[in-house]
Amino acid sequence: MQQNHHEETIPGSMWTLAVGVLVTVISLWVGKNLSWTMPEQASLQAPLVDNLFDILITIGTALFLLTDGAIIYALIKFRHRPGDETDAAPIKGNLPLEIFWTAIPAIIVIFLGIYSTDVFREMGGLEPPGHHMGGSHSEMAQVMTAPDPDNESSKYGVGAAPDKQNVPADLQVKVTGLQFAWLFNYPEAGIMSGELHVPVGKEVKLELVATDVLHAFWVPQFRIKQDVMPGKPSQMRFVATKTGVFPIVCAELCGSYHGGMRSKIYVHTQEEYDAWLEENAIAAKNQDAVETVAVNTQDLSDEEFLAPYSSDLGIDRDTLSEIKSLASAITETAYQ
């Protein structure tokens, strides 16, 4: 934006051009080199969010350089000289310039709004509510007959990408948030776990509900987050694109140990995932579900996770399993 040079008499078009080129180059460079600020990309949504962020920061850097540059330039060039007791030339405004610096940001934000909407659609953000909110009863009826009976859970959150809207997810997991833990229930396999295991490259749908207070389910590597609310089921659909272990973070203040409400998501290859499923499904069949959780290897890391403040909270292995059995009962009723 050259408006700041508009009034000036000395710098010619070459000067303006040089500033313009420099600002453009720096802004593009900054926008292209932001990956260090972000965790790795591990879902289909992540590159979409990062591209939007790159564009926002490119435009933002240009605005920052021009505006703050103009301020610093003015501070130096137009500083008061000792002994000068006169006032500056009384320029009260410049209508074309004012129209210019109103119109350009307006055009930029309208462009951003449209682009942002498009990115949001690609991410699946418009899928769950857009169809059902204003929908007629017949539409609702169709949803009722769809494979997913919990149509309520489709109202809020991140749904399927536009090309997957009529495809049921490959895996559905019921997620329960409670002070201060996450519980993952695999209804088909009958598994209850303190950590989330999913296969890479598959459509996964989480159905999220809280039993006590608000929580928020966030996987920074996936770039998506959804509040988990009591009485208002929400959903999150994603495709993990990388195998590995990523943090699950609670992002909504949920009480004193909110900062400790962390878990992990294991993104496996299909073979690893099948093996995990088999091992745990057998365990679930052979033993009482509560014991399964208690003896399962998964809760070792639960204990690790609880260890630093287990004395404060009074949570040990037994209470954890109690909480989990309680929670599974609650979860069942919550999804009735």
């Binding site: 408006q3 009034e7 301020i71 934000v109 309208i110 709004g113 942002s116 909407t117």
Partner: peptide
């Protein structure tokens, strides 16, 4: 989406103010 667009619009009048103050400094005796 609706509130994304209204939110972005607030940047326009805010920008007008910032630019106006820079315009006030420009050519002044600061």
């Amino acid at each position: 989406m609706f509130f994304t667009i209204t939110t972005l619009l607030v940047a326009v009048p805010t920008g007008v103010k910032i630019f106006s103050w820079v315009g006030t400094m420009w050519g002044g005796k600061i």
